[in-house]
């Protein structure tokens, strides 16, 4: 069977480049579009970009930390209620 175009590492690399280019474009577009910031912090350059990134990084870290405490093998509840 012919491999799907997404299976080729070359194309995946291209997609990555495209993605990074779009990321840069959304930030640079701030220079051309008036954003009408509502809050002081929002007026910082590229606020939504770095805020989104940092917020996600923070949530992943919190999840990771919580996982250390609360993760169990997924067979944990098996056998419950058999009695």
């Amino acid at each position: 069977m012919k491999p799907h175009w997404l299976d080729e590492p070359r194309n995946v690399k291209r997609l990555w480049r495209l993605f990074l280019a779009v990321l840069a474009a959304t930030v640079l577009a701030e220079l051309a579009v008036a954003l009408h910031p509502h809050f002081e912090v929002e007026a910082l350059f590229g606020f939504h970009a770095w805020y989104g990134f940092l917020a996600c990084a923070a949530m992943i870290l919190v999840a990771k930390g919580l996982g250390l405490l609360l993760k169990r093998p997924d067979t944990y509840y098996e056998g419950d209620g058999d009695e």
């Binding site: 993605f19 992943i60 093998p73």
Partner: peptide, 25 residues
Amino acid sequence: QLLLFSGLAFFAMLPWLKRTPTLTL
């Protein structure tokens, strides 16, 4: 901006998000 950079965070931190056969209490 908000969404695409969240996407960047996802792929940048993908090893941290690797799925494991676990459940969370």
